[in-house]
């Protein structure tokens, strides 16, 4: 019960925060763009639903844009913004004098970030569906009438979500350590850009924890990666969280 209260309090802090706005705007940006594009030139829908597996192609297309362009930046920024709420408002001292264990505070904060990413996924998925359904209803195209691949839909979401976990853990770690917001954001963006460069020029790019979201949507299916990137993602996530937890507990000044 205590933990649920702590988690609720962490979630309440995100209300109207920059991270929350970023989540809503970032997640709805592409669906809105697709709706506008379909409404502007609705014949483009025909290009999609003329093919087999129409939903799958559509999902993959929109997810590819998202995973390459917006999601990694969004995860870096929102993870950092949520973790930094206490530094920005000078509230660590108040939080650390509440009757909660440090483990509860740490876990509730981390979970609030993960929930924000889940919220991002939910808004984006609703956006995907609406961006397909609204133009199709208006112009009587066949996209929504095709069988809905629910399993594929959940699978692609889960895979991309797992690929985000290392970024969440590392950004969380950096944000708890540095008071200056620019350091975790700067380091995060540097690692992301570095990973993008590595993906197109180095066969061991999968070693970078910031590469998985992009690797998932750019990979060549005829040449599968030599490693299981989901296992790597989970490994980096656990490692990041353990180091972050240790550093958080060992801070001498908790104000």
């Amino acid at each position: 019960m205590n933990f649920i209260n702590s988690l609720q309090s962490e979630w309440m802090k995100t209300r109207r925060s920059a991270a929350s706005w970023l989540c809503i705007i970032g997640a709805s940006f592409l669906p809105v763009l697709f709706i506008v594009s379909f409404l502007k030139d609705h014949s483009t829908i025909n290009d999609i639903h003329g093919q087999q597996n129409v939903w799958k192609i559509y999902f993959f297309q929109i997810w590819r844009f998202m995973a390459m362009a917006i999601l990694p930046f969004g995860v870096i920024l929102s993870s950092t913004l949520i973790a930094q709420i206490e530094y920005r408002n000078n509230t660590w001292k108040q939080l650390h004098t509440t009757p909660q264990s440090l483990t509860t505070i740490f876990t509730a904060k981390l979970l609030a970030i993960i929930l924000m990413v889940v919220k991002f996924f939910i808004i984006f998925n609703i956006g995907i569906l609406l961006s397909a359904i609204i133009p199709s209803l208006l112009f009587r195209h066949g996209l929504p009438t095709a069988a809905f691949p629910f399993y594929f839909f959940m699978e692609i979401n889960l895979k991309i979500f797992i690929s985000c976990l290392p970024v969440i853990a590392i950004q969380f770690l950096l944000s708890l350590q540095f008071k200056n917001f620019l350091i975790p954001v700067g380091v995060g963006l540097l690692l992301l850009v570095g990973s993008i460069i590595l993906i197109f020029g180095w066969k061991y790019a999968y070693l970078s924890p910031y590469s998985y979201t992009i690797l998932l949507v750019t990979g060549d299916k005829t040449k599968p990666l030599p490693v299981n990137i989901y296992a790597f993602s989970a490994g980096y996530f656990i490692l990041g969280v353990v180091i972050s937890y240790y550093l958080y507990l060992s801070k001498k000044d908790k104000s």
């Binding site: 802090k13 109207r16 925060s17 408002n89 509230t91």
Partner: peptide, 8 residues
Amino acid sequence: SPSLYGHL
């Protein structure tokens, strides 16, 4: 100093 969440 007071510990307040400025956006709330």
